[in-house]
């Protein structure tokens, strides 16, 4: 017998013994049978993709929670930054306004000081000009005052000379025995 005949013999279709199917069905559990045989309902088919193990559900929940938390944190951070930027801008505006007022007042003070300084210089120079203008008059007045003083001096000297002459005369008279009398 060659190999082909041997294979044909070995793989020949053999009918099962009678009652084999019944015996087999008796050995399979009823639940398995019903699960396999029952067609899932429409709603069950809808839920079926979501039907997962509880651990997977928990994991998914954690992921969703973390994602939501992250988003909320980012949102609150952005909001805080926006508020801070707004406050910073407001503070900047206030600062510029305050410095503007302070600078303006400092400028007013500086301008006033400069004005007063320049007025002082002007008055000084004006004073010099007036003095020059008044100089001849002053000199004239000074001259007249000097003349008056000189004349007074001459008068005094004249009186003194007269008195000296009179004293000498008296002294001469004393030598001749007369009393000395000096009047004022």
């Amino acid at each position: 017998m060659n190999i082909d005949d041997e294979l044909k013999l070995a793989l020949k279709r053999v009918e099962p013994p009678s009652g084999f199917a019944e015996r087999l069905m008796l050995n399979i559990p009823a639940t398995t049978l019903s699960r396999e045989t029952e067609r899932p309902s429409f709603w069950m088919r809808l839920i079926l993709p979501f039907k997962m193990h509880s651990v997977r559900w928990a994991a998914a929940g954690v992921v969703v929670f973390l994602a939501a938390g992250g988003l909320m944190l980012r949102f609150s951070e952005q909001r805080r930054e926006a508020i801070e930027t707004e406050a910073a801008e407001a503070a900047k505006e206030q600062l510029l306004l305050a410095l503007g007022v302070a600078s303006e007042k400092m400028n007013v003070a500086q301008r006033k000081v400069t004005e007063i300084g320049s007025q002082g210089k002007e008055s000084e120079s004006r004073g010099e000009t007036d003095q020059n203008r008044r100089a001849p008059r002053i000199r004239k007045r000074q001259t007249s005052q000097g003349n008056r003083a000189a004349s007074d001096l001459f008068a005094a000297l004249h009186v003194a000379a007269e008195r000296i002459e009179r004293i000498q005369a008296h002294l001469n008279d004393q030598r001749s025995g007369d009393a000395i009398y000096i009047d004022n």
């Binding site: 410095l99 503007g100 007022v101 302070a102 600078s103 303006e104 007042k105 400092m106 400028n107």
Partner: peptide, 25 residues
């Protein structure tokens, strides 16, 4: 009334008027 607390450069403050984006009032 202006009160500035801290180190102030008076010359720079005077110069600020009309400069540096601050309007000279």
């Amino acid at each position: 009334i202006v009160n500035i607390v801290g180190p102030v450069d008076l010359e720079k403050l005077v110069e600020l008027g009309g400069k540096l984006g601050i309007p000279r009032l």
